[in-house]
Simulated assay, not measured.
Amino acid sequence: MNNLDKKDRIILINQYKILAALDTDDRSHYKELIEILENGYSVFYNLIDQWVGDDMPSEEGRFVLNVLDLYRAIEDLKRSTKDSRINSHPYSFFRGFDGNNETEYMGFCRFLIETQGKFQEQKPYLLKNDNLNSHTPMTPKYLRMLRKRAELNIDFSLTPEEAIQILDA
């Protein structure tokens, strides 16, 4: 945030005055932001929005949803089959995303599972996958798995053979 017109500054000043009155623990922080805005110290405008992340592109969000949908299908298959090739496969459970290199994806997964309550079949794995942090980049693997699923022309239900092909991708 580099430029704010006076109208935007007035709106933000009023918001921060309200917050300063309501949140006594952070009152000094809000007063600092008010002073920055009142005086137009644009060099410090980045303090106003530093806690707001950049937009996640829709295609990236769709990628995460597709990966979780694929793992939902794998979980459904695991419940209906006792095929040891699937249950013992190293990628038979969702490993999450790398906290250092795929942080935005990992955060989105946590939002979907913990905040929105979606993909609850993943909750039992949160200890096994370190709360969705794979500690290694997983995007290339998931892309191969999704490509294999598309190549096999599978919407949801998987056979054990299809699942093995996808997991081995």
Score class of each variant (00 low, 15 high):
residue 70 L to A: 01
residue 158 L to H: 00
residue 142 Y to Q: 04
residue 163 A to W: 00
residue 135 H to A: 12
residue 81 T to Y: 09
residue 153 N to H: 15
residue 115 T to N: 08
residue 160 P to H: 08
residue 51 W to T: 09
residue 36 I to G: 04
residue 76 D to E: 15
residue 82 K to F: 04
residue 124 P to Q: 13
residue 157 S to P: 01
residue 123 K to P: 09
residue 38 E to P: 12
residue 58 S to V: 08
residue 1 M to F: 04
residue 12 L to I: 10
residue 103 T to G: 11
residue 58 S to P: 03
residue 35 E to F: 07
residue 129 N to I: 03
residue 38 E to F: 08
residue 71 Y to K: 00
residue 8 D to C: 04
residue 27 R to F: 11
residue 146 L to K: 05
residue 112 L to I: 03
residue 55 D to K: 07
residue 146 L to Q: 07
residue 52 V to I: 13
residue 133 N to K: 06
residue 9 R to W: 04
residue 51 W to V: 13
residue 136 T to G: 09
residue 51 W to F: 11
residue 51 W to K: 11
residue 80 S to K: 15
residue 17 K to S: 14
residue 32 E to N: 11
residue 114 E to T: 01
residue 15 Q to I: 09
residue 148 K to I: 02
residue 69 D to S: 15
residue 117 G to N: 02
residue 56 M to F: 15
residue 115 T to K: 13
residue 169 A to R: 01
residue 27 R to M: 13
residue 24 T to M: 11
residue 148 K to E: 07
residue 119 F to R: 12
residue 81 T to N: 14
residue 84 S to W: 05
residue 107 G to A: 13
residue 166 I to R: 01
residue 61 G to V: 06
residue 140 P to S: 06
residue 63 F to P: 00
residue 157 S to Y: 07
residue 75 E to K: 06
residue 36 I to S: 02
residue 60 E to Y: 06
residue 97 F to M: 11
residue 135 H to E: 15
residue 70 L to Y: 01
residue 35 E to A: 13
residue 124 P to Y: 13
residue 29 H to M: 09
residue 17 K to E: 15
residue 48 I to F: 10
residue 135 H to R: 13
residue 22 L to Q: 14
residue 33 L to Q: 05
residue 6 K to M: 10
residue 100 N to A: 11
residue 23 D to S: 07
residue 90 P to E: 13
residue 135 H to D: 14
residue 6 K to L: 10
residue 166 I to W: 02
residue 157 S to M: 10
residue 32 E to I: 14
residue 14 N to T: 09
residue 44 F to P: 07
residue 68 L to P: 02
residue 111 F to M: 15
residue 145 M to H: 02
residue 23 D to R: 09
residue 71 Y to T: 00
residue 56 M to G: 09
residue 74 I to L: 09
residue 137 P to Q: 15
residue 103 T to M: 07
residue 86 I to K: 00
residue 94 F to K: 05
residue 75 E to Q: 12
residue 134 S to D: 09
residue 68 L to Y: 04
residue 112 L to P: 02
residue 139 T to M: 14
residue 66 N to F: 02
residue 41 Y to V: 13
residue 3 N to A: 03
residue 122 Q to S: 12
residue 115 T to S: 13
residue 73 A to C: 12
residue 24 T to I: 12
residue 149 R to Y: 02
residue 62 R to V: 10
residue 126 L to A: 08
residue 146 L to Y: 08
residue 28 S to P: 06
